[in-house]
Nucleic acid binder design. Structure first.
Length: 539
DNA sequence: GCGGATCAC
DNA sequence: TATGGTGATCCGC
């Protein structure tokens, strides 16, 4: 973004961060990461001319196969709402117009409007740093009901152009407008323009940007080019597509994040998509078959052109951050809260599963997961707690800032599912799709000998077994949202804390039963932990 | 099947 | 004072 003093922003972010536990953890991760890159460079250096010649033939073969799948017959549009949450908030409070504003709280920001971005304020930036960058910044708490309402309005517009459009999140969607273009004898460009006007009208003023391209991977990149309130069209022409992809930095591609970007650049000297093809032998030498496949398809600008299959959810989880503590009674209370929330969510979806995963983040930001798989399907708070408390107990003593629980390996048939057909957006759109190949470099080149195994192993590559292109890395899960609400800062946690204390003293409270049940369960679970039982009185 | 990592939003 | 939550995937064990 122009007009941003990047150096100043960087300096302030650094000043605010350095010395913190968060920052120390980032440094630890970076050191680990540099080592990984060094390993890859070493492996590169060891490659002999004969090896490289071999990998070049492998690469050339893959490239030929990929080229054969190229389909330039479809017209995809990727629609991306501009600063969506911030724009919605401004719509409902016009006094915010023209002022720097961010949706979120002191701990984390989910979206900043364009006025705030000029100060260097960004999504995923902690609010207290944002305020330092822009002291007059207005904070607005997240309100998902509002965003869902406006998202639904936009989807009504999308439906008119592609009834099978793919909602990638509340504020993004992919539309295959090939048919509507044919019917109306018009271009993707015109459709995108009309669609954007429709969104603007139907929502009462929200703007969006669009990318028009022959596949979803490209459409996604294109929607970012003339943002905000603009569009970019990439014609269905091989030459135009190849020219476009050539100079594109790899980081612009969905699925290539910060880490992959650095690996490609520092280990292989690859910064643009063009260079992927130029160094295709190294790509094949260093990465797994599926990773190489993904990278090479990026170099060729080949992406998904079909409408991806609807897939059911694989896991469901619940996690909460609180101010770090080693107080075991508190930690078990939190665990019980999360178990209960998870159980509630499971009931809503009529799901039961066999694998329970406990997620912990220590006071020093180190993340750990511990899982158990049982024979029986579980869904009740009690069953979840039975396993979860064992997992947590094995980690004690430990000072934590986050606890989470995830259930997976679902039962085939749902039990008592409240099957509400109007809930289409939540269940039917639960497709996943990244064929992301982002596990860089840990795989030995020997793996190339087990190509088939690798291909089958991946749940979904950009090529399905029957040769049709399936959902690709540019496809997003609709439930992936910035669920920033309710964790503004320590308020929510200390809020719970006080609430519990109150409930404990006043048994007439409506919530008392719940707490007692939880407590009762905890007492059974923690029977051998005298200290915890006595401390429970505090909560 | 488990644990660590990465990515997206 | 203060750096999120949900879901998915891959790899190496």
């Amino acid at each position: 973004m122009e007009g941003v003093d990047k150096e100043k922003v960087q300096r302030i972010v650094y000043e605010m961060s350095k010395g913190s536990q968060y920052f120390k953890n980032e440094e630890r991760k970076e050191a680990f990461f540099r080592e990984k890159i060094e390993n890859m460079r070493a492996r590169c250096a060891k490659l002999k001319p004969a090896d490289l010649a071999h990998y070049q033939t492998v690469a050339d073969k893959i490239i030929l196969e990929l080229e054969a799948t190229r389909d330039l017959s479809r017209i995809w549009v990727h629609v991306d709402m501009d600063a969506f949450y911030a724009a919605v908030e401004t719509l409902s409070d016009p006094s915010l117009k023209g002022k720097p504003m961010a949706v979120g709280g002191m701990s984390m920001i989910s979206t900043a409007n364009y006025e705030a971005r000029r100060f260097g304020v960004r999504a995923a930036m902690p609010g207290f740093i944002a305020r330092k960058l822009c002291p007059e910044l207005i904070f607005v708490p997240t309100d998902f009901k509002k965003y869902t309402y406006y998202s639904d309005l936009t989807r009504k517009v999308f439906e008119k152009y592609d009834p099978n459009f793919v909602a990638a999140s509340l504020d993004e969607a992919y539309l295959d407008v090939t048919e509507v273009c044919k019917e109306r004898g018009t271009t993707g460009e015109e459709i995108a323009r009309e669609l954007r006007a429709g969104v603007h009208d139907e929502t009462g003023g929200l703007t969006c940007s669009a990318g028009v391209a022959p596949n979803r991977l490209l459409a996604k990149v294109c929607s970012d080019i003339n943002k905000p309130n603009g569009q970019f069209i990439l014609p269905n022409d091989r030459m135009a597509v190849m020219t476009f992809i050539s100079s594109l930095p790899v980081r612009k591609i969905g699925g290539i994040g910060k880490v992959t970007e650095h690996i490609l650049r520092d280990a292989l000297g690859i910064s643009t998509c063009e260079e992927i093809l130029q160094k295709s032998s190294y790509i094949c030498a260093l990465f797994s078959h599926s990773s190489a496949d993904f990278f090479l398809s990026v170099g060729l600008a080949i992406g998904g052109t079909d409408t991806p299959q609807v897939r059911s959810r694989r896991s469901i989880s619940n996690e909460r951050t609180f101010s770090a503590t080693g107080d075991e009674a508190f930690l078990f209370c939190k665990l019980a809260d999360i178990a209960e929330m998870l159980s509630t969510d499971l009931q809503k979806e009529g799901l039961r599963g066999r694998t329970l995963t406990l997620k912990l983040k220590t006071a020093s930001f180190e993340v750990r997961t511990r899982a158990v798989t049982s024979q029986k399907n579980i869904c009740s708070t009690e069953d979840i707690m039975k396993h979860a408390s064992k997992l947590l107990k094995a980690e004690l003593p430990v000072s934590l800032r986050l606890i989470g629980l995830r259930l997976s390996h679902f039962d085939e048939e749902k039990v008592g599912a409240p099957s509400d057909p109007t809930q289409k957006t939540l269940t039917d759109y639960m497709l996943s799709g990244d064929a992301l190949r982002k596990n860089m470099g840990d795989q030995s080149s020997l793996d190339l000998d087990s190509t088939d195994h690798c291909m089958m192993h991946g749940e979904e590559t950009y090529l399905s077994k029957d040769g049709h292109q399936t959902s690709s890395c540019d496809y997003r899960d609709p439930l992936d949202e910035n669920h920033l609400s309710n964790l503004d800062d320590s308020k929510s946690t200390s809020g719970n804390f006080e609430e519990k204390e109150e409930i404990y003293e006043s048994t007439s409270n409506a919530n008392a039963e719940k707490v007692c049940v939880v407590k009762g369960m905890l007492m059974v679970i923690l029977l051998d932990t005298e200290k915890v039982i006595t401390q429970l009185h505090k909560y």
